[in-house]
Design a protein around this nucleic acid. Structure first.
Lengths: 169, 169
DNA sequence: CGTAAACCTTTGACATTTGAAATATTGCTC
DNA sequence: GAGCAATATTTCAAATGTCAAAGGTTTACG
């Protein structure tokens, strides 16, 4: 009888003692991280239970759903923020399941284009609708005005981070 | 004709057409997720380049750093939001590197307690200081007032999510 | 006591992840 | 055309991640 392995405690508690006025950015980051993990775990659990799919698969299929002509693997890699090598295996498994198919265009044989199959489109359609509902449910207690403002402000964070990256963009 | 793709394409672009009072929560979630991924990748890269450590290792050591008497693996699992099985391997590798040690208390032989070694404390101290600086740098362009407000508002999101989980908790 | 329930960790099978190196193909240059 | 840089994907090793099941230990109860 496996009980849930994830408890209620999380790392937020650990940094409770962080003084005011200092380390605000670190505090924000830890809260963003823990919240994102929390939502991801919930989405993952529901995807698994209701559709037998994984989160990375869902993300990848989301991109293909919007580009019915398919996407090159490199493009998929950028959009999902997943490394090239990872996309290969991901697409491979989806192809095995008959959700995605790969083809090489005549023009350039270096390229592999992935696109959703009929089966893939149908499955993703159902998942996307459910997914949107899950998010709405999870954030049900948050004032819509705050949701909108958060979207805007996090945009500023993202923008700032993008301007201060050390490696390649 | 291939367009330039040198920029930073990400999934945000894909949902641009989603506005109009609907799906705000989904839009917020996608932005949170992409921003978190972006920061995580940057932190991971710097941890690797400057300290030869991984992000999960850093997270785990952070917990042990605050509990000098050590933590049971189950407690570590909850705090890091990492599954039990995963903690086992993580601690194993850190022990191999001499950063962490495991011991079983006399009272209860079911339990394994992990704690930082001297070497582990020293390394983590250096990493934590650097880590805090990285975060401050990355968020340098964000108004401190917004940082504080984001922390508060994301707290509401987290709270709402916690109240609408399907699984355990 | 003796056994079942509860607890804690480990193990196992797989999927995902990164980073780097290896492959393959194209396009450019001489 | 031969050589080479640039492009695109795959492969590889090691680490992380989930979940489920199995392993010991302890506790509680009849």
């Amino acid at each position: 009888m496996a009980e849930s392995e994830s408890g209620t405690v999380d790392l937020e508690i650990i940094v409770q003692g962080t003084q005011e006025g200092k380390k605000q950015e670190l505090r924000l980051w830890l809260r963003m991280l823990s919240t994102t993990k929390l939502v991801s775990q919930e989405v993952r659990r529901r995807l698994r239970n209701e559709f037998g799919a994984t989160l990375p698969q869902f993300d990848l299929m989301a991109q293909l759903y919007r580009e019915r002509d398919g996407l090159r693997l490199g493009e998929l890699s950028k959009r999902t923020m997943v490394t090239n090598g990872n996309v290969t295996g991901l697409v491979e498994r989806l192809e095995t399941d008959g959700l995605v198919l790969r083809e090489t265009p005549d023009g350039d044989r270096r390229v592999t284009v992935a696109k959703l199959t009929k089966k893939g489109e149908e499955l993703f359609g159902a998942m996307a609708a459910a997914h949107e509902g899950w998010l709405r449910d999870m954030m049900a207690d948050v004032d819509p005005a705050i949701v909108t403002e958060l979207w805007k402000d996090i945009g500023e964070v993202k923008s700032s981070v993008n301007n201060h990256l050390s490696g390649a963009d």
